[in-house]
Simulated scan of single mutants.
Amino acid sequence: MRIAVVAVSVILLLLAVVWGYQRQLIYLPDTSAARVGGNDVVLQTSDGLLLDASLVPARQPDRGIAVLVANGNGGNRAGRAPLAQALAAEGMTVLLFDYRGYGGNEGSPTERGLARDVRAAQRYLVEKAGLPPERIIYFGESLGGAVVTALATEAAPGGLVLRSPFVDLASVGREHYPFLPVRLLLRDKFPLAEQLAGVKVPVVVVYGSADSIVPPSQSRSVAQAAPTLKDLVEIAGADHNDASLVHGPSVIAAVVRLADQL
């Protein structure tokens, strides 16, 4: 009996720790100030935070299209500089930004907070940069795919590119913590596939066949949930953070094909 009590106590303690510290497991920010190139800009969120961002101008000929990049859960926008430069070389303006708690920004990341942050980025492109919403492509990387999909349900873009997307956070969490009741414990849900079902803009899904973070089957399930899937691109042999999947030629070509349709 005593052993059973001790075992239950240990399990409850473990669950309490996971509950209290789960966001430290989900969000892995590089808090150093990011240096990207382009024009440094500041975004203001609806709850009053100021976020550092970089607007990388299109090279000529300018397509008159902007790409709003929502990062994954790690690093900061400096790691997305090669993506921005490659897209700019194809005639697209690119907005990179850091979420709250990333890249030297104040605040702490949460699902609700990231929704405010990406909304501030979209508002900047429309109100400050003068881009019509239908000339903006949302590019979401992994967790950022859920962030831009939620944004698309309230502010429709011209198109949506989801790189290594998951069905929802619990689904990918179960892959890495199969011994935990992940769905019950999670505070932040990020229900990407559920929300994507209500998005009526052209959607592109890109994933790596050897992704060890987000299983390829999850990205394919996301593609199946898209009402207007235009392109499904598998990058053979690519893991989650491989250069070929982060900013490789197949990724850039997929964005260009979408831009040609706008």
Rank of each mutant, 00 (worst) to 15 (best):
M1G: 15
G20I: 00
G20N: 12
Y21V: 04
Y21M: 03
I26H: 14
S32E: 08
A34N: 08
A34M: 03
D40T: 09
V41M: 02
V42P: 07
L49Y: 14
L50P: 06
L51D: 11
L55Y: 09
V56A: 05
Q60F: 05
P61K: 12
D62R: 06
A70L: 04
A70T: 04
G72P: 09
R80S: 10
P82F: 05
P82I: 03
L87P: 01
M92E: 01
M92T: 01
L95C: 05
Y102D: 02
R112K: 11
A115Q: 14
R116C: 03
D117H: 14
A120F: 05
Q122Y: 15
R123G: 14
Y124P: 01
P133W: 05
Y138F: 03
Y138W: 00
S142D: 10
L143D: 13
A150M: 07
A155K: 14
G158S: 08
V172I: 12
L180V: 02
E194C: 04
E194D: 15
K200S: 15
V201N: 05
V203W: 03
R220K: 06
A226M: 03
K230M: 01
V233G: 08
E234C: 11
G237V: 04
A238Y: 12
H240G: 08
A243V: 06
G248T: 04
S250Y: 07
S250M: 06
V251P: 09
R257W: 00
A259G: 06
Q261C: 00
